[in-house]
């Protein structure tokens, strides 16, 4: 299997642990990930706020590059990128004005976007293309006894994704169960973490994060598994500020790909576990064994 890969800015920056765990896991499963040549920022939520047409042109450049590379699927791990690229595809289809702007823009660079490339989230590809059976075969170190709160965040399942339910997604739940982990009932799995506000309006963003952490702890989770670089940073990096306000709610947040790597028995240093503020440890039978290097 060959896939085109659109990392997005976060996976090269704050969320690099995501890329650092995703690539070995995909390689381990025999999937080839070819990074899209000269991709650009998707524009995220910010560009849409300034100019919708230009935001679509910006995002469409990536779609056009993928089409030019002959990609059938473009794997997009960041939730914001995934949403923006899918939204752009929809807008090009639905709005003649946007289609015209995109055609003009891309045309000026000798590119075109016909919508032949699908924008896919790695979670979708892993579960629906590669399959849980294949993944199960690769599990050498089942995550026995690990209680995980599956946290999808807001943007990946709505409103354009078709691979799961917008309110109660279960793809990651099934994946984690396959890895041998125990999934706790976590009704906040698609609640917004406030990441886009934590930097700008900390009081508001931190409270949203706090509720997510508190409920994960209350429901007995050992770790929160996430699929979005922004969510991971938000749930991981602000414990100090949160604890100052509401008391301790300490729980690590890792990428689902990191948990997959652990279950596959990949070496810890390949999984970038050391890039978290709150270190994650497997509550294994050999108590105290740290998967992540101590800091």
């Amino acid at each position: 299997m060959k896939y085109s890969y659109f990392p997005g800015c976060s996976l090269k920056g704050l969320g690099r642990a995501y890329e650092e765990s995703l690539l070995p896991v995909m390689r381990h499963l025999g999937a080839e990930m070819n990074e899209l040549d000269d991709w650009n920022c998707c524009g995220a939520t910010a560009y849409m706020s300034v100019d919708e047409q230009l935001a679509c042109v910006l995002a469409a450049r990536n779609l056009a590059l993928a089409e030019k590379a002959g990609a059938r699927d473009l794997i997009t791990p960041c939730s914001a990128c995934y949403l923006v690229l899918n939204k752009t595809k929809h807008y090009i289809e639905d709005s003649p004005a946007i289609r015209a702007a995109v055609e003009r823009g891309l045309g000026a660079a000798g590119l075109k976007c016909e919508g032949t490339t699908s924008v896919r989230h790695p979670l979708d590809v892993l579960v629906n293309d590669i399959g849980l059976d294949v993944i199960k075969e690769k599990v050498v170190r089942p995550l026995k006894g690990l209680k995980v709160a599956p946290y999808y965040g807001c943007q990946v399942v709505r409103p354009y994704a078709t691979f799961d339910d917008a309110w109660n997604p279960t793809t990651m739940d099934r994946l984690l169960t396959t890895l041998g982990a125990e999934v706790v009932h976590y009704p906040l799995k698609t609640k917004c973490c406030g990441a886009s506000l934590t930097g700008t309006l900390p009081e508001i963003g931190l409270r949203l994060t706090y509720i997510l952490l508190k409920e994960a702890v209350r429901r007995g989770a050992d770790v929160i598994a996430t699929i979005c670089p922004l969510c991971q940073f938000n749930l991981d990096a602000y414990h100090h500020q949160i604890e100052q306000r509401w008391g301790p709610v300490r729980i690590p947040t890792v990428y689902f790909t990191q948990l997959m790597g652990i279950a596959f028995g990949l070496p810890a240093k390949q999984l970038a576990l050391g890039r978290s503020f709150i270190p994650f440890r497997m509550p294994s039978a050999k108590a105290g064994e740290a998967v992540a290097p101590r800091t």
């Binding site: 450049r61 702007a101 000026a108 660079a109």
Partner: peptide
């Protein structure tokens, strides 16, 4: 440059 051209073309015509 390519990006700049694209955005300029889309914006100008708009």
């Amino acid at each position: 440059g390519e990006l700049e051209t694209m955005l300029a073309a889309a914006a100008r015509d708009k």
